[in-house]
């Protein structure tokens, strides 16, 4: 498990997935081809299932495009940890079944090289040896996340 750390605020959806591909890349494998292209060109070749992304505040601001959350879920990112998230991105992550952890303290505490692990059920994020509790999602959102996203949740006749 590796941490992909981006020491900046306002990482917007154009950096996560450039808008010019919005209508040419439809499937998850196509989306992954351009994931984080303008932020970290190495990301696609280095990311592994279970990896964690760490960044500053207002992560995912900008467009309502869901390619970033869909792509991150598809490559197996376990969680995105940030100081804060933009609203539509946050919503979209629940819809895709991607775990987000908002913890400004943990991001401040982190130094590149630190081990990071997350236990969503217990609501604990661990950076090096330090534990950062995070509040659980409201029950409704948690059931969508646990179903693996909104459409699976609907298929399971929850709607």
């Amino acid at each position: 498990m590796a941490v992909h750390y981006y020491d900046q605020n306002d990482i917007n959806t154009d950096l996560l997935f450039p808008g010019k591909y919005t209508y040419t890349c439809g499937t998850a494998p196509e989306i992954v081809e351009h994931l984080l292209e303008d932020l970290d060109p190495e990301f696609r070749s280095t990311v592994k299932p279970g990896d964690i992304i760490m960044a500053g505040s207002n992560f995912g601001c900008g467009s309502s495009r869901e390619q970033p959350t869909l792509g991150l879920k598809y490559v197996g990112v376990q969680a995105v940890v940030a100081k804060s998230f933009a609203r539509i991105f946050y919503r979209s992550s629940i819809n895709q079944g991607l775990l987000l952890v908002q913890s400004p303290e943990a991001v401040e505490f982190y130094t590149p090289g630190d081990e990071v692990s997350v236990d969503p059920a217990a609501g604990i994020l661990k950076v090096a040896e330090r534990e950062f509790p995070f509040p659980p999602l409201p029950a409704e959102m948690l059931s969508i996340l646990e179903a693996g996203g909104l459409l699976n949740w609907i298929k399971g006749n929850n709607a």
């Binding site: 309502s64 869901e66 959350t69 539509i88 919503r91 819809n95 996203g149 909104l150 709607a159």
Partner: peptide
């Protein structure tokens, strides 16, 4: 307000 594509499908 804005939502994503998945939510629109929902």
């Amino acid at each position: 307000t804005g939502i994503d594509r998945t939510e629109a499908a929902g």
